[in-house]
Design a protein around this nucleic acid. Structure first.
Length: 500
RNA sequence: GGGCCGUUAGCUCAGUCGGUAGAGCAUCGGACUUUUAAUCCGCUGGUCGCAGGUUCGAAUCCUGCACGGCCCA
């Protein structure tokens, strides 16, 4: 950690007390032993014995070994209770002086909440019926020098939760569950695509040309080659090269980097799933996304009904579909849909809605701006928006009936874009034309415009099969499935400004 | 980038009109062999985010900055 607090700058009296204890441990032997082995987990014991009555438990003579963090300590003279937390859950420990011995009991009294301990004993039930481990032995495995947040109020300060995620994970069950669900989502998506014959690949994160999306890249430098490289903003162009190469179903699930601001929906590095399927179009891709999201919710949450920030969502029904133009017309009744190709009309409407209209913006770009301004946040129910203007879709295939729009969709839920997909543009001459238009936009000042990628064109010239592709934002999907209001809640270590 | 809100003990939070810095939990000492927010008794613990300014006097008012949150771009 480069931006952490300076060395030992905040030793309080609380830390000092614990350091004294550590010093005594050191003089008595190895203060950080690594010899203790557990043979079970808290949840295993609960699963096995919670339903067993106290008298039957009293006959259980098997000795179990647990290890974990001490989360509570209640000492009453010559006996005490403690709470041990391991990766699976919690188990109460019952410590009696005459069972563990006087020396071990004294040591126990000196343990602090937060210490890592090993506990050996038999199962029992207390008089209130709580399953506990009646200890024969208790040993310290690692001393905790800093006090944990208070047991009742816990840790709520968002800044500390993000900067010291380990603390958040120790004390906030919700945080732990969020990241377990995240892992389950990723696991599900891989299984889902694998089962359909998709091949997972890894393509460059350091790219000579940043391509595949409209975004500003991070720039870095390769010393040996003495050239700048770009952290990828998307893997798209590489994945389509692989489709050219015969990987007809291919996906990558990994990090992208975009040099943009931080917000509750944006982190400079974020995780994207991109998958490509040859001999399919965007409509089939939509079907696949529908199935994928429904099955994902089912696998991860157990049902297709999702509660997010106080509202209910149903992923079990087919998602609403409408074109971008329809959506704009619906949300802007004062606009004339018949004039959606009229740049002047749209420029005026865009300006009236606070859009900074640039000279290089055509009708398609302006319509999209108006869409983003007036529609996106209102797309609450799961919705596919289709027919994005060709002008804003330089990698998507034109619609056969109307070349002004592309065979493209974006998926929205809870007012947020979760996925983007289209029938891939596989006509190399059309792609060359689109790249040139992007280069013109870049020259005119659009910093997010794409760069001309000659090698990608060369690949297209060998022949890209008709293909559909989709990008799915994993962080936003996990936000949705874990009822998390901020992207920072689903990133273990979100980007933060340096501390102090 | 702009607006609003926040930053006080390890944690969660009070702090009135500008007049010696408070609580709960945790810590520390003592009692206690079925507690579970254990209980009881006693004691600790502070660079009030940072830097200036106003004032006899600033946690409090003003300015700037840092970090965080929400909203907007």
């Amino acid at each position: 950690m480069s931006d952490g607090p300076s060395d030992r700058d905040d030793d309080s009296y609380l830390v000092a007390h614990r350091r004294d204890k550590l010093a005594r441990l050191r003089s008595a032997g190895n203060a950080y032993p690594n010899g203790f082995r557990r043979d079970t987990l808290a949840e295993h014991l609960h699963g096995r014995f919670d339903a067993v009555d106290a008298t039957s438990l009293a006959a259980e003579t098997r000795v179990y070994r647990l290890a974990g963090r001490l989360m509570a300590k209640r000492v009453m003279g010559k006996a005490g209770f403690a709470q041990l937390q391991d990766a699976s859950g919690c188990m109460q420990l019952f410590v009696q002086q005459n069972a563990v011995g006087e020396a071990a009991y004294e040591a126990f009294k000196n343990f602090d909440v937060g210490d890592l301990v090993g506990a050996v004993g038999t199962v029992m039930k207390t008089k209130t019926g709580e399953l506990s481990l009646k200890l024969q032995r208790l040993e310290l495995l690692a001393k905790s020098l800093r006090p944990l947040p208070e047991k009742w109020a816990g840790l709520t300060d968002t800044e500390t939760r993000y900067r010291q995620r380990y603390l958040d994970l120790i004390v906030n069950r919700q945080a732990r569950e969020t990241f377990l669900i995240r892992a389950a989502v990723v696991r599900f998506l891989r299984q889902f695509l694998d089962s359909l014959g998709f091949v997972e690949v890894e393509t460059p994160m350091l790219q000579p040309l940043p391509g595949g999306a409209a975004a500003r890249p991070f720039v870095t430098h390769h010393n040996a080659l003495d050239r700048d490289l770009y952290l990828r903003i998307a893997p798209e162009l590489y994945l389509k090269r692989l489709v050219v190469g015969g990987f007809e179903r291919v996906y990558e699930l990994n990090r992208n980097f975009r040099n943009e601001g931080l917000s509750s929906r944006h982190n400079p590095e974020f995780t994207m799933l991109e998958f490509y399927q040859a001999y399919a179009d965007y409509r089939e891709a939509m079907e696949l996304v529908e199935t994928m999201l429904r099955d994902c919710a089912l696998a991860v949450c157990g049902c297709t009904a999702v509660r997010y920030q106080g509202a209910n969502y149903e992923l079990g029904r087919p998602f609403r579909r409408l074109t971008l133009a329809q959506a704009v017309a619906e949300a802007n009744p004062d606009l004339d849909p018949a004039r959606f190709g009229d740049r002047n009309h749209l420029a005026e409407a865009a300006r009236a809605r606070g859009v900074l209209v640039g000279r290089e913006m055509g009708a398609g770009k302006l319509l999209t701006e108006i869409f983003e301004k007036t529609v996106e946040a209102k797309l609450i129910e799961p919705t596919f928006i289709t027919e994005y203007p060709t002008e804003v879709s330089p990698l998507a295939r034109c619609n056969d009936a109307n070349p002004e729009v592309t065979d493209r969709f974006e998926f929205f839920v809870a007012g947020r874009e979760l996925a983007n997909g289209f029938s891939e543009l596989n006509d190399p001459d059309d792609q060359a034309l689109r790249f040139r238009r992007q280069a013109e936009a870049k020259a005119a000042g659009d910093e997010e415009a794409m760069v001309f990628d000659a090698d990608y064109l060369r690949a297209l010239e060998y022949g890209l099969p008709p293909t559909a592709g989709v990008g799915l934002g994993i962080d936003r999907l996990v936000m949705f499935l874990t009822d998390s209001p901020s992207i920072r809640d689903v990133l273990l270590f979100p980007a933060m400004r340096p501390e102090r």
